[in-house]
Amino acid sequence: MSAVRSDRSDRSDSAPSAAATAGGARRRARAVARLPLQLLSLAICLLLWQWASSRQLHLGFVTFANVPPPAEVLDAARALLDSPKLWPHLSSSLARVGFGFGAAAVLGVALGLAIGRSTWARLTLLPPLEVLRPIPAVAWIPLAILMFPSSEGSMVFITFVGALFPILLNTIHGAEAVDARLVAAARSLGTRGLRLFSEVIAPGAAPSIVTGLSIGMGTCWFCLVTAEMIAGQYGIGYYTWESYTVQAYPNIVVGMLLIGVLGMGSSVAVRRFGALLTPWYQIKGGRHD
């Protein structure tokens, strides 16, 4: 064929390569090889912490005099593990995050899909949201305490506000970015009305939604801990703050580490869940048979 060729050269009809599976094994081997250095780095940090706290290092602008050493933190962690209060602390924090994040996910995705695809929805729904968006969730705490009769309600509300905007904005972006040709193809194949959302817009926006959920989960924990410090009875944030007020300093660090672990764990869970929802997106990086 001699006539003008499209310069958008595409893959040829040859069989797709199977190189990606070998790549996965190589990546794992490399990760194992790097492990000792990473562990060493962590060990050095622990040693520095031990050294600074046992020497009660005082640098003028910062002092380690009241910082508990790692061994004491470990003891405090053991004590918490045996304590009957561990479960109430954990479960109340997890429940607050669960309700707040769940509500933010449902509302953020639904609003985001509508706003991303409909001019009418954008004009009616977006302005109030844009006004509220720059207000940090933490700034809501006083008003939330006044608005909600129960402190549970106000804390769930704070986590909800924290998670809502990352989810909403990423969903809007994802819905807007769905290829117009995909929509045209779906319409030509007989797709009408709401099915366009369930069959094309939502799955097309899914990778962005997963990103939003993952970020939202992070901000959710951030806001929860702050809310619990001020208005809590149980919860990891409350435990951390309470430890300060009763001068059980090793417990502060236990609380901090626990918050880190829970935050990281829930973010990993969201990402795993997202990967299950978007299997095609996982293949995209390397196509393999």
Binding site: D179, L182, A184, E199, A206
Partner: peptide
């Protein structure tokens, strides 16, 4: 309607 490329549903 058949387009030039990339209009299959990737998901």
């Amino acid at each position: 309607l058949v387009f030039q490329q990339h209009t299959l549903f990737p998901w």
